[in-house]
């Protein structure tokens, strides 16, 4: 049974540090490149951490800026000031 959570982001300059941060914080994640977008899958759980994105970006980053780059998600969403997390309860 698949437990894959997934986030799809535009493949552009705004999203690149987010994609990098996901790579750092989710070592098990896999990255599927398509024209203009990248679909990131991870077993069970996937997190985007504000701290990591800010380090990569060199400025303050509001987790809700994710809204500008997001294309699709699969999983239950937990959004806080410091992180955005997707998970399945299985």
């Amino acid at each position: 049974m698949s437990r894959t959570v997934s986030i799809t982001l535009q493949n552009n300059d705004d999203a690149r540090p987010i994609i990098e941060a996901i790579k750092k914080d989710n070592p098990k994640a896999t990255f599927n490149l398509y024209p203009a977008m990248v679909k990131i899958d991870c077993d069970g759980r996937l997190i985007v951490k504000q701290e990591t994105v800010e380090e990569l970006l060199g400025r303050e980053w509001d987790v809700q800026e994710l809204h500008l780059s997001i294309i699709s998600i699969a999983g239950n969403v937990d959004e806080e000031d410091e992180y955005f997390e997707l998970s399945w309860n299985i």
């Binding site: 049974m1 698949s2 437990r3 894959t4 959570v5 997934s6 699969a74 999983g75 239950n76 399945w88």
Partner: peptide
Amino acid sequence: EAGGALFAD
């Protein structure tokens, strides 16, 4: 795949 995980949840 995505629907499978959703309905398992």
